[in-house]
């Protein structure tokens, strides 16, 4: 061990471990969540009922949902993001001098990481907590499709979503490929090329799912969906023996959405 080693910080002493955890967290759970999330949302293409039942399935976790969300989504994501920002701060992109494909991807990986992160923060706050003030509206798990459709109605919001989704998807697909190099899964140039195809396919499929979900949500017939969702909610309540009004529903702020 070099003399420098002793006087270095915790972070530099555990740099390897941290960056491997960083790499891992990008795939599991953050990347895995992204896949589940986009595929779930894409189920809206099969109709508001299908989507609602998927959402219901997730929400059947009840009170456990919040800790699970934090433990497996938000915290890993925050970890991934903060290490990511540190890495970005330590690098010095130079695509203008070296416009090679690999370098462009390297730079895009950083750019999309930052975009995706900003998007996710906004996305969560907008859909989960604040709703309209941040554009669109708020998500209602009992009226999944209709509330989402309303939230995504504004064109500006939809565009931001498209950018956010594609950034996240690129970041994951490209990250998958670099991860394979980092961990030593593919080592030869030929293997890297093959792996590249895998990452392209993953990217295209996921991108398709994400954009499909977005388009699907926006195409939902709000009235019809609401009817279906109300019916499903009714049935659930009956099954669980809940009284109407136990879970106060926040009505989507239809006015603002429609007024846009």
């Amino acid at each position: 061990m070099s003399p420098a080693e002793a006087e270095t910080s915790f972070f530099s002493r555990h740099q390897f471990l941290i960056s491997r955890l960083f790499s891992l967290s990008g795939l599991i759970p953050v990347g895995a969540f992204l896949v589940v999330h986009l595929v779930t949302n894409a189920s809206v293409l099969a109709g508001p009922g299908t989507f609602q039942s998927r959402v219901d399935l997730i929400h059947s976790l009840g009170p456990l949902l919040v800790p699970i969300e934090w433990a497996f989504i938000f915290l890993p994501m925050l970890f991934h993001a903060s290490v990511g920002f540190a890495i970005i701060a330590g690098g010095l992109p130079n695509v203008s001098s070296y416009p090679y494909v690999g370098n462009v991807r390297y730079t895009l990986q950083r750019a999309t990481g930052m975009i995706a992160f900003a998007f996710i923060i906004w996305h969560v706050i907008q859909l989960h907590w604040m709703g309209a003030p941040l554009g669109g509206g708020k998500f209602d798990p009992h009226h999944a499709s209709s509330s989402a459709a309303l939230a995504l109605q504004p064109v500006g919001v939809a565009i931001l979503y498209a950018i956010g989704i594609l950034s996240a998807v690129f970041h994951l697909a490209n990250g998958l490929w670099t991860m394979g190099i980092t961990w030593g899964l593919w080592t030869s140039p030929a293997a890297m090329q093959r792996a590249n195809w895998i990452s392209i396919i993953v990217g295209v499929l996921l991108g398709g799912a994400g954009l499909g979900a977005l388009a699907g949500m926006r195409r939902v017939d709000v009235e019809q969906a609401r009817a279906i969702e109300d019916r499903m909610d009714e049935m659930k309540r009956m099954l669980e023996g809940r009284e109407p009004g136990d879970a106060p529903l926040v009505r989507p702020v239809a006015t603002s959405a429609e007024g846009n």
Partner: peptide, 25 residues
């Protein structure tokens, strides 16, 4: 250890500019 392989960000510029065409990646 610090400054080791984990710092590499897989930009693959190294392999593109190496005058000896060493398969660095």
């Amino acid at each position: 250890s610090a400054g080791g392989i984990q710092v590499c960000g897989n930009a693959q510029n190294c392999v593109a500019v190496c005058p000896k065409h060493i398969p660095l990646t």
